[in-house]
Amino acid sequence: MKRHRSPIGSSALGAIEMAKSLLIISRQAPWSGPGAREALDIALAGGAFDLPLGVLFLDDGVFQLQAAQQPGQLQQKNLAANLQALPMFGVDELFVSSVSLAERGMDAGNLSLAAQPLDEAELSALVDRYDQVITL
């Protein structure tokens, strides 16, 4: 895919090529506090700047992926719709804890966004794989 680079200096470009990979662990429910929004904003900003990053939905964070949410009356930005833009922003590495899903009676096949379910052993392997990790 052809990618647009803004006209910035070659040293800055070098910094982007060398960028460290980042895993964002999003573990807050979508509508009650700023955590889920902050995690998404970091992912969208990182994606817009071509950073290699992944998002893991853990604990109550999996509620962000509940299908058919209708937050229209909440007077908040529509996080559920915004989440759908992650692949457009180049963020394709999306993961979800299968234990967190099972605890909440949710099915990996019925999420609003395609995320790869991971078991417990795969979770620690995932964290290991990234250069940096941030948990919100």
């Binding site: 573990r27 853990l58 604990d59 804890s97 234990v99 417990e120 979770l123 620690s124 392997a125 995932l126 964290v127 290991d128």
Partner: peptide, 9 residues
Amino acid sequence: ASCLRLLGN
């Protein structure tokens, strides 16, 4: 609890 779940060796 969640930290212990994804804690590596």
